[in-house]
Computed example of a mutant assay.
Amino acid sequence: MQLVVARIGRAHGIKGEVTVEVRTDEPELRLAPGAVLATDPASAGPLTIETGRVHSGRLLLRFEGVRDRNAAEALRNTLLIADVDPDELPEEEDEYYDHQLIDLDVVTADGTEVGRITEISHLPTQDLFVVERPDGREVYVPFVAEIVTEIDLEEQRAVIDPPPGLIDDRAEIASSRDEDAGA
């Protein structure tokens, strides 16, 4: 199975380093020196990571054969793709790889359909599920224990207990406010 693990950003300095937007829970494993990654577009790779370091909170990578700013800048917006064994599991019991969560159905505890996870957004403070609603809209669900109460990989679903306003339609919220104001 192939997974997008990062997107190349701007060139950094003049010696071929690039910033990367990490899209994996395990950058130390997937983006380590020596890792060979496929690319999208495919014409940019494969790329072999030569060095990696953190600078001002950003991961910087240098690839074999990329020696100057121009070559680094030519890679901008390229997606880095790793081959991952689909049976590989994280070390911790309550941890999941993104590929295990993508396409899970999202339901509330009472079984109400919310949508389907289309993406995991890894932010500095927490991860978010990007959930596509049946009507095509997207909602963002923080991946925290207080809200995501169960992940059932066998049933292919995530059960959530959303706070008011997280997934409710704006019209429903306005309607309930009008009812409260009139009471």
Rank of each mutant, 00 (worst) to 15 (best):
S56F: 12
V84Q: 10
A145Q: 14
T19A: 12
P41Y: 07
G13A: 06
S56W: 11
I8A: 04
I160E: 02
R30V: 11
S176W: 09
V36Y: 01
V144A: 04
L47I: 09
A42P: 06
L59H: 06
V114S: 00
I151D: 03
D168W: 05
E26Q: 12
I173F: 01
H55W: 08
R157M: 10
A183Q: 10
D152N: 15
D103A: 11
A145Y: 11
T125K: 14
D40W: 09
P142M: 06
L153I: 07
I102W: 00
T39I: 04
E91D: 11
D68C: 09
D40H: 12
R157L: 13
G13W: 06
E50L: 14
P134I: 07
A72G: 03
D178G: 07
R10I: 02
G52I: 00
V18I: 10
S176R: 15
Y140W: 12
L79E: 10
L79P: 01
Q126S: 09
T24A: 08
D85R: 04
R53C: 04
I120F: 03
A11N: 07
G52N: 08
F129W: 09
E119M: 07
E93Y: 06
A181Y: 10
P90M: 03
I173T: 11
Q2V: 12
Q100H: 13
G45R: 09
T125G: 06
I147Q: 01
V84P: 01
Q156M: 09
T118C: 05
A181R: 15
E28T: 11
N77H: 14
D161R: 13
D40T: 09
A171F: 12
Q2W: 06
D85H: 04
T39R: 05
E93Q: 08
R157S: 05
E93L: 10
L31I: 07
V66T: 13
V131Q: 03
G111F: 05
D85F: 03
V84T: 11
P33M: 06
A171E: 15
V114M: 04
E155Y: 00
P46K: 10
G45H: 06
A32P: 00
R10N: 14
E88R: 14
E64Q: 14
R137T: 15
R62W: 02
T48A: 13
V139W: 03
Q126H: 11
E26W: 09
H55R: 13
D87A: 15
P86L: 02
V20D: 03
H12A: 14
S176Q: 13
L29Q: 13
V130I: 15
L79Q: 06
V159L: 07
V18A: 05
D152S: 07
D135W: 08
E21L: 13
A11F: 00
D161H: 08
K15G: 06
G165N: 07
D110T: 15
G115L: 05
R23N: 11
E172W: 08
A35C: 15
V107L: 04
E26F: 12
L166S: 05
L29D: 13
